[in-house]
Design a protein around this nucleic acid. Structure first.
Length: 573
DNA sequence: GCCGTTTTCGGCCCGACTGTTTTCAGTCG
């Protein structure tokens, strides 16, 4: 058995014991043994055979037994059990500078944080500062450390990759070497998680353009470089490809490199039936190129109306385009106001006044404040008297602004039994109630479905918040029957949130069209915990588009006299 | 978990530094 593997296992046991809060001397014994074996000049298997391990200083009865088991069987039961008792994410968290076993353990025990992504999210929600032994600077340091770590993983949130891609596109355009340039691939389709950035450009000077690309200041490593395709890794760790084509090939290439693969396959199949060959260089009748100036021409040539990139997943878009039934998708500037905004009353980091001012500055006509309800203990949920105080402040602010309406709301926890946590005399004071699950994720599928359905049916419920509870790349959502939940929302005329936070993007777009087809209406909610969070709304719009939604399907494209009225969902029909 | 021996359990490396906390705990090397 490889000595290095044995050393690694001993060191990991030491680490796991520290995380468990065992005696520091016990874990040190394992570290010491690891070091001893590492520097041992005898063969460990021979020592085991001759039963001479115990003669080595630092290896006593217990370690002798364990090492013998490990060397002879290749496995160690004690290690396997230890590993299984601790979430693997905790070990990853130790890689963050400034985080040791004690703090990781505190984060796990007090905040139930089990992975780096969950930790990052908790930092952004400002949840670490309240913890004993932690503070503003520690939280900052941990957050910065996570940004560093993230450079080494393989998947990225849409928002992260998109911002990288936009910067790169600006750079490429600034070289003066490109004719046309676009972000392609899954980013252009607005997938919630992407593996890489695909850029496409047309140019008279492909060689010079590639030279410029690989010398972009953000490039960390050049993987490949040619005249038509180059690959680099950016400082953020994201793999980035640039394809360069002739300008007359550009529309075909843009369609091809936007994908999805499934959409492209279906399109080629359709073309072939019409006697047309289709690839990234063109549409061909025999040897003759069919001239297309842009993507719209390509679709039209195949007797289809234009299909926006977000819909290109081979999920019915080609059939819809054939019938001329591609929806007119919602756009950023359709949004007139926002719901689901947190303030310093609960776990937000900007005041009610500041959030309202930021919404005004963004041109919104209304802002729906919804802090956490009293059961959200970890997030500083509002007790009844605090709710009343906030409602008073909102009324006061409403008197002082004529260009924005502040709506009174709450993000009420859905308790394990599906009930809400305020009495009716409080609930009836709100303009809107968002209901969300924030605890007890580990219920059975049936129980969780019932819990959600009961909350939807509650007469004070207006919006079902982040339906699945997932945190992208960090935490799976809880198990529930999404179709039953959507059907219930449809039946009771309740609105489903598209949470626009880049970590959530929940309801998943794959179910949005199902809900729309059943008449469900949506609210695109930033779930903002600070002023910057208000900008997340655009990611929600992206998901809404991916879910085939039009402006009329979305509550916050309506004027405040409609959304602010008691029976607004009636107007949405 | 190991060691040494006071043969049965107490001690096991520590100082600088940081960010908390208000006298100290945790991390790092």
């Amino acid at each position: 058995m490889d000595k290095k593997l044995i050393v690694d296992i001993l060191n990991e046991i030491g680490l796991l014991l520290e995380l468990k809060g065992e005696s520091p001397f016990k874990s040190r014994a394992y570290y010491n043994a690891a070091k001893t074996i590492e520097t041992l000049d005898q063969d460990i298997e021979t020592l085991v055979k001759q039963d001479k391990l115990k003669e080595i200083k630092g290896i006593g009865d217990a370690l002798n037994k364990k090492l013998t088991e490990l060397v002879t069987t290749g496995k160690l039961d004690y290690y396997e059990k230890l590993k299984a008792s601790i979430p693997t994410g905790l070990i990853d968290m130790l890689k963050i500078p400034g985080l040791g076993p004690k703090k990781v353990r505190a984060l796990y025990e007090k905040l139930n944080i089990k992975s780096i992504r969950e930790l990052e999210y908790a930092c952004m929600e400002n949840r670490l500062v309240e913890l004993q032994g932690f503070g503003e600077k520690t939280q900052r340091k941990i957050y910065d450390g996570i940004q560093f770590i993230k450079q080494h993983t393989g998947q990225y949130l849409y928002a992260e990759a998109f911002n990288e891609a936009v910067r790169l596109k600006k750079f490429l355009e600034s070289t003066g070497l490109v004719q046309r340039c676009d972000i392609a691939g899954s980013l252009r389709r607005r997938k919630e998680v992407v593996k890489d950035v695909d850029m496409l450009a047309s140019s008279h000077y492909p060689g010079e353009l590639m030279d410029a690309f690989v010398s972009y200041e953000d490039v960390r490593e050049i993987i490949a470089k040619g005249d038509t395709k180059s690959s680099v890794i950016l400082n953020s760790g994201i793999n980035t490809d640039l394809r360069v084509v002739k300008d007359e090939e550009y529309p075909y290439a843009l369609h091809h490199f936007t994908g999805s693969k499934e959409h492209n396959t279906a399109m080629r199949h359709r073309a072939k039936k019409m006697g047309i060959k289709m690839n990234e260089y063109g549409l061909f009748h025999g040897e003759d190129l069919i001239i297309c100036r842009d993507e719209e021409d390509i679709f039209n040539r195949l007797n289809l109306s234009y299909i926006p990139p977000e819909l290109r997943e081979n999920m019915g878009e080609i059939e819809a385009a054939e019938r001329g039934e591609i929806p007119s998708l919602i756009q950023d500037d359709d949004i007139k106001g926002i719901f689901h905004v947190h303030t310093t009353y609960s776990d937000g980091s900007n005041s009610l006044y500041d959030m309202v001012q930021a919404a005004r500055a963004s041109g919104y006509k209304y802002i729906g404040i919804s802090d956490h309800s009293k059961s959200a203990f970890y997030a500083g949920g509002l007790k009844e008297e605090t709710v009343l105080r906030q409602l008073d402040e909102i009324e006061e602010l409403n008197r002082s602004f004529s260009d924005i309406v502040i709506l009174k709301g709450i993000e009420s926890d859905i308790l394990p039994d599906g009930s809400l946590d305020y009495d009716e005399d409080i609930l009836e004071k709100f303009d809107f109630v968002i209901v969300s699950v924030h605890s007890h994720f580990k219920m059975s599928r049936e129980e969780m479905t019932e819990r959600l359905i009961k909350a939807i049916k509650n007469k004070y419920t207006k919006i079902l918040g982040h339906c699945s509870g997932r945190l992208l790349l960090a935490r799976e959502g809880y198990d529930f029957d999404v179709y039953k939940v959507i059907d219930t929302a449809a039946e009771y005329g309740k609105i489903i949130e598209i949470n626009a936070n880049p970590y959530r993007l929940d309801l998943d777009w794959r179910y949005v069209k199902y809900a729309k087809d059943r008449g469900v209406k949506f609210a695109i909610n930033p779930d903002a915990h600070n002023i910057g969070g208000l900008n997340d709304i655009k990611y929600g719009v992206g998901i809404a588009r991916k879910g085939w939604l039009e402006a009329r399907d979305v509550l916050n494209t309506y004027d405040v006299d409609i959304v602010g009225s008691e029976k607004y969902f009636v107007y949405l029909d």
